Computed example of a mutant assay.
Amino acid sequence: MQESFDINDSIEGIWEKLGEWTDSLILSLPNFILAILVFVLFVIAAKYVGKLLGRILRFKVRQDSIREITIKIVKVLVIVLGFFVALGLLNLDTVLTSVLAGAGVVGLAIGLALQGTLNNTFSGILLSFLPEIQIGDWIENNGYAGRVVEINLRSIVIKEADNNYVVIPNSQVVDAPFKNFSRTSRSRVMLDCGVGYESDLELVKELTIKAISEHFPQKGNEEVEFMYKEFGDSSINFVVRFWTDVTSNREILLARSKAVIAVKKIYDENDINIPFPIRTLEFNNKLNIDRSSED
């Protein structure tokens, strides 16, 4: 009889517990439905936020990979926010606290493990929004010079003049100074040269400025600048500076080559000498040479 009594009590306890759970489920059903609806709305909102962000980034970011990863990150953040709001509607404060604590620990561990990678990633996102460097620009950075062909979340890729590609981590580009030849349409080109000591220096200056001005018209307040620098070993050296349309290292070399041809031509027409180093050997042991020849 005792065993039958215990079984009946257990069955009644189970039914009472199931009844309590059913009542609790019925009472929580509106919040549960509301939480599902809120989460679905956040998922839909993430989709439209991604589309809107894509339209905005299309005019700001030229790199497709940067736009795509940025849109994905924003969509995930919106969905995660909806998940936490849904948990709050279900009054699952303990679960929400545990999830946030676990996310913090996991995020810290991932951040420490991928510190260098994350640094390059955030630097890549920063570079994609900087107007100072864009795809197609000719830059100098970390001892390399070339045209930017790609900006991704890990590095930028530049193509050097010798047709080789150089991959530079984004963090190094952000942390180090870089020179961008393409940000300005006109730049100043410098040409070094020298003339013989017998030359008329005033005439040399006049002819040089004339030759450069004819081939490189100056605009606005620009002017051809000519300055003598020093008395060299075999020439009086000078530098001439002028403005022209250049946006890459190659165009600078072409402009300097054109200037060399122009200056050499006008110097030849006016018998102006551009000397080259000469080494003179003197033999002061003539007496010894004569004696050795007699022997």
Rank of each mutant, 00 (worst) to 15 (best):
C193A: 12
V149M: 10
T70M: 14
I272E: 00
L89K: 08
G111Q: 10
V195K: 04
F231V: 09
A259F: 05
N285R: 03
V240K: 06
S199Y: 00
S248P: 03
R154N: 15
G143F: 13
S65I: 06
E12W: 00
Q134S: 11
E20C: 06
K51W: 15
K159S: 10
A145Y: 00
D200I: 03
I11V: 07
G88V: 01
L41C: 12
E214F: 07
L108T: 06
F242I: 03
L77N: 03
F181K: 10
I7R: 07
R154D: 15
R279N: 04
T184E: 15
F42T: 02
S28L: 15
E294S: 03
P275H: 01
K258C: 13
D233T: 11
I56M: 14
E282I: 11
R250P: 02
A86M: 10
V95M: 06
S187L: 12
F5A: 08
A86Q: 11
F178H: 09
N180A: 06
T22W: 15
D9A: 07
D245Q: 13
I261W: 09
N170E: 09
V49C: 08
A113V: 08
R188L: 05
K264F: 09
M227E: 12
G104V: 09
T121A: 14
I168S: 04
L25P: 02
E3S: 10
D268L: 14
V240Y: 13
E150G: 01
T22H: 10
W243A: 05
Y228D: 00
I156W: 08
